[in-house]
Design a protein around this nucleic acid. Structure first.
Length: 1015
RNA sequence: GGGCUGGUAGCUCAGGUGGUUAGAGCGCACGACUGAUAAUCGUGAGGUCGGAGGUUCGAGUCCUCCUCGGCCCA
């Protein structure tokens, strides 16, 4: 476009080197990003990255596998973005940083989905051959792996998506089984037992999520447990604080109870004589669990107990006057009422006395059984809400009962008590031989707890009759309460002791270590980011019970061992080899195939003597083994990994299981560093939930704003803690993105005029040297930041650098030189060179964080380049470092601030518009500041047309700012004429007759351009 | 209830070993430019540092309690 013919002046804008670029101001990421994903895919960027780095040291972040059962949510996005930034940054810092994504495929949730589909079709899972069912689970997982894979790629995640690892591919299944067999061969695997929720109707174990609570009427009974013994020595040990190590650990311990122990007095013993012919009273809603009773739990401190005597009884059966029972004071009246009698309180029974008591089983002697001692155990679950203040403890029939029992197992064993948990009920609900008098030895056959239709059997009845016959029943009643039912059959379930496979935490592994001690040592040897993770994982490992590997399930890797009657595992390498080979070829389905038992046992072992275990491995064992079949087995990775990164919930999960698996088989952790991130909350800091409508999905963000926006959010957040995400927060990041994008855009536009002429550092103006110094400083921040995984520090400092030092300072100042200077201008060439340095660094530094935008920018500058992601971070030469310049220019900027502040007043008063209309007087009385600006062209730096500096104090009315003492500014208009080309007001406008409306500098530039034929 | 962890301007974050009027960017308000233009530049207003005690000459920073939130257990 040309000006109208009568305008005699040139359109000088055409003689300027104004920014020129196709790089759009508006990103259009939702459209642009998928194009880049396709581009990377097409050029096989992943392969190029590997080839490019093949001789570099490896850096391996091992992927914690997401579960393959649905679209990704914000947590997945956060997790993968963090991982991606780490792998990309290490790749660009000189490593071969190979990321292999993985998926967790086995387990309950997928089984449920398939079952759900069955139900919709009216099919029954139990009628489908197990391997057919497993096939459907496999296909289901496959589907979601594909979906998530695409979603991750769309987020800009770079990795080997064509060859990911999965826990269900045949090799993985074989190796997982192999890891299990290592535990078996080293004796760490053992068969124990544990109560599980069991549906008699369906003959299957149920997980907590598979039961629903419905109202149910239970028989309730109050039962007397006669006191058998009082351990006076133990009483004195407590009084004298001389308890054994075991007692200290499990009973007395430190703290409140120890405090109480200090108040133990001899007169507490007064009641003991009366206790000897008394009973402890318990209450239960499951009379059929009495044969399984092994202990009685009481409260350590908070419940007051007393000895009561029956004063009068309404009935001539049941408890009669003179009988003595111990009950919690607050519950005594209720018990008396139920038994229809009156109680007299005889004496307080101190909790410490209870600690020293041993009871007899109420059915002692029945059918020759129940001869064992029944200990009283401290239980934190005991309350005064209902019952007697004493809790009947049948470790095979309740979770808390089991926990209390197992926790005290070493102490009990020391007391000569058999800690074996009896299997009193079989899978059909019948009593077994472990319930003498009620099982097969009973006249008329075993009693039954629940029948095939889910109705109550005769178990409660016969147990209550036996208690009456033994005169141990105190009272009976019925109770309506919420009771667990199978969500499929809607029938009541029972807690039933079942055989399970465990891994010892405290078995000596032959080198004076145990799995626990090895794991604790490994935690000490691991770097945790943030550091708190170490404490958290340590606390869990210190406390945890043995590792239960069994799941009574179908979709998973089987616990592929053979056991004899006593639970001893067959240890034969030849058998193992056959199993692993078969799994490698056919997958773990081979275990469930027809004739598997004979096939694997071979000729050497009698199938009749060995039972094939059909339990499935806990999926945590699968994922705990990923290091084995991924890090060890892939030649392009390494073991151990440099880093694992997951949400903080994985202290209980993957970090934990990987640690135990690896310590059990290899003696150390499979990682050197563990990084954890927090959870993503809604904008108000509360959990996101669909029902509240405050959830943000990565799909929505990508569709509306782009993956780079989501990535920028991750970069700007403190991911070590919980983060917040919502509309306003997203907008903040969109704004920050735009600012950075525009700054890059300006550089691209400016560099369009870069002819690649390099300028030596020594030949550069000081302003350029200052910026290079800042670049050098930033280089350290960036590298240290990536090293410390502190991304917000990097993104923040790079952002602020771009905003404060480039956009608002350096670029603003240099626009005049870059736009207006002659082609030969050294100042201009130096500036171009510096912008070039800045561009290359800033764009590569940000490439791991904003891979789409930086790729777009890189290709815009270097159209022949393959990808920014194949670049390395540019080094900053040591000569760029110049601390003196750094501090000097800080001062220069202080003076500049005062000048711009003064100009703002002028602007307000409408005396100037552009700063180029001004030529202020600057009075600098501060020596340091004056020295700093002595050889600096302050007019250039302040973007004014002139400036006068004086060491004398300014007049009273001069402009000052309190932050910069010693500087006073008196504004003044620039003298001269506005140059039509550069808009600066100078006194040499018109000095060149050929270009009468421009300044001398601009006239010279025009002459040069003319000579070059560019005018 | 237990273990770990957090609450600094509207938003996101800085604030070694306690020490002058608590910082930054964004957003917001106002202004300038119109040769980075749905951009750019400048100026400004925003905070009882979750609350209450305590230690100290002095606490956002140390201690105790409370409160709200998160993850994992029970």
């Amino acid at each position: 476009m040309t000006d109208s013919a009568d305008n005699q002046t040139l359109d000088y804008s055409k003689t300027l080197n104004l920014p020129q670029t196709d790089f759009p101001m508006r990103a259009g990421l939702p459209k642009k990003e998928p194009e880049l994903v396709a581009r990377w895919q097409e050029m096989d960027l992943y392969r190029k990255l590997r080839d490019d780095a093949k001789d570099r040291p490896r850096y391996v972040l091992h992927d914690g596998p997401p579960y393959a059962n649905g679209n990704i949510h914000i947590g997945h996005a956060l997790n993968k973005i963090l991982k991606d930034v780490i792998t990309r940054s290490f790749q660009m810092r000189g490593y071969d940083s190979n990321y292999v994504p993985g998926w967790d495929c086995h387990g309950l949730p997928i089984e449920w989905k398939i079952e759900e589909q069955y139900r919709a079709k009216g099919k029954n899972k139990d009628e489908v051959p197990v391997n057919e069912f497993r096939k459907e689970c496999r296909d289901f997982a496959d589907h979601w792996i594909k979906v998530q894979s695409e979603e991750f790629k769309r987020l800009g995640i770079e990795g080997d998506f064509d060859n990911p690892y999965t826990t269900m591919n045949f090799h993985a299944e074989s190796r997982i089984a192999g890891e299990l067999l290592k535990f078996a061969m080293s004796g760490q695997l053992y068969r124990g037992s544990k109560p599980v929720m069991w549906s008699v109707v369906e003959r299957t174990a149920l997980a907590e999520a598979e039961v629903e609570y419905q109202e149910y009427e239970s028989d309730t009974i109050w039962v007397k447990f006669p006191v058998a013994e009082f351990d006076e020595e133990k009483f004195h040990r407590i009084r004298d604080r001389k308890t054994t190590e075991l007692e200290k650990r499990f009973e007395v311990g430190e703290g409140a109870y120890a405090e109480q122990a200090g108040h133990v007095t001899e007169d507490m013993l007064d009641v003991v004589a009366q206790l000897r012919d008394a009973s402890i009273l318990i209450w239960t809603t499951t009379p059929w669990t009495i044969p399984g009773n092994r202990a009685v739990a009481f409260a350590k401190l908070n419940i007051a107990y007393s000895l009561y005597e029956v004063a009068e009884a309404e009935n001539d059966f049941g408890p009669q006057p003179g009988e003595k029972v111990v009950i919690a004071d607050r519950l005594a009246d209720g018990c008396a009422e139920k038994a229809k009698l009156k109680l007299n309180r005889l004496a307080k029974v101190d909790n410490i006395l209870l600690e020293c008591l041993t009871l007899a089983h109420p059915l002692k002697g029945l059918a020759g059984g129940y001869e064992f001692d029944v200990p009283l155990l401290v239980g934190s679950h005991v309350t005064e809400d209902a019952g007697t203040g004493f809790v009947h403890t049948a470790p095979g029939h309740g979770r808390e009962d089991f926990d209390v029992w197992m926790e005290r197992a070493p102490l009990l064993a020391a007391r000569g008590i058999d800690t074996m948990i009896p299997f009193t009920v079989d899978d059909a609900g019948y009593f077994t031989k472990d319930a003498p008098g009620f099982g097969p030895d009973r006249e008329g056959g075993p009693a039954r707890v629940i029948d095939d239709k889910g109705k109550k059997g005769d178990a409660n009845k016969v147990v209550i009759e036996a208690l009456i016959a033994a005169d141990r029943l105190f009272a009976r009643s019925r109770l309506k309460h919420e009771y667990p039912h199978s969500w499929r059959s809607k029938k009541p379930v029972i807690f039933r002791n079942t055989p399970q496979w465990f891994v010892h935490m405290d078995m000596d592994l032959g080198d004076d270590t145990t799995l626990r001690s090895r794991a604790l040592k490994a935690i000490d040897d691991t770097r945790f980011v943030p550091a708190g993770g170490q404490t958290r994982l340590r606390a869990m490992i210190e406390d945890r019970p043995d590792w239960v590997l069994s799941r009574q399930r179908a979709w998973g890797v089987p616990i592929c061992v053979f056991a004899d009657e006593d639970g001893n595992v067959l240890k034969d390498e030849a058998v193992n080899a056959r199993i692993l080979e078969a799994f490698e070829e056919e997958g773990a389905d081979a275990w469930f195939a027809e004739g598997a038992k004979e096939r694997f046992l071979g000729n050497e072992h009698d199938p009749a003597k060995w039972t094939q275990v059909t339990d499935i491995l806990d999926v945590w064992f699968d994922s705990g083994s990923t290091h084995a079949f991924t890090l060890e087995d892939r030649p392009d990775l390494k073991w151990p990994a440099d880093v694992y990164l997951e949400g903080s919930d994985q202290h209980r999960g993957w970090f934990h299981s990987s640690l135990l698996e690896s310590c059990g088989t290899r003696g150390r952790a499979p990682y050197d560093t563990v990084i954890t991130h927090g959870f993503t909350m809604a904008e108000d800091g509360k959990k996101m939930s669909k029902s509240l409508g405050n959830n943000v999905t990565p799909q929505d963000v990508m569709k509306d704003s782009g993956a780079d926006i989501l990535r920028l959010w991750v970069m700007n957040t403190d991911y070590w803690e919980d983060q917040r995400l919502g509309k306003a927060i997203l907008q903040t990041n969109i704004d920050a993105y735009r600012k950075m994008r525009n700054t890059i855009r300006w550089m691209l536009g400016t560099l369009a005029h870069d002819e690649g002429e390099s300028v030596e550092y020594a030949d550069m103006p000081e302003l350029e040297k200052y910026i290079l110094h800042r670049l050098w400083e930033l280089d350290n921040v960036v590298n240290n930041g990536y090293e410390a995984f502190d991304f917000k520090k990097i993104s923040r400092q790079v952002h602020d650098f771009m905003v404060l030092e480039l956009s608002a300072f350096y670029f603003d100042i240099r626009k005049d030189a870059l736009y207006c200077d002659a082609p030969s201008s050294k100042r201009r060439k130096a500036a171009l060179q510096v912008v070039h340095h800045i561009f290359d660094r800033v764009v590569t530094w940000l490439a791991p964080m904003l891979p789409f935008t930086m790729e777009e920018a890189w290709l815009s500058r270097y159209p022949d380049a393959v990808s920014v992601h194949l670049e390395q971070f540019r080094k900053c030469p040591p000569e760029w470092r110049n601390d003196d310049l750094g501090s000097k220019w800080k001062k220069v900027r202080q003076v500049r601030r005062t000048v711009t502040g003064a100009l703002e007043i002028e602007r307000k008063e409408k005396r100037i518009g552009s700063s180029l209309e001004a030529a202020p007087f600057v009075h600098v009385t501060d020596d340091a500041l004056r020295a700093a600006i002595e050889d600096v062209d302050m007019a250039e730096i302040s973007i004014t047309s002139g400036i006068s500096v004086s060491p004398k104090p300014g007049p009273d009315e001069a402009f000052t700012i309190p932050e910069v003492p010693g500087v006073a500014v008196v504004p003044a208009l620039a003298k001269g004429t506005k140059c039509a080309r550069s808009w600066r007001v100078t006194q040499d406008v018109g000095s060149d007759p050929e270009f009468p409306d421009v300044s001398a500098r601009d006239a010279a530039a025009l002459h040069e351009l003319k000579a070059l034929g560019k005018l």
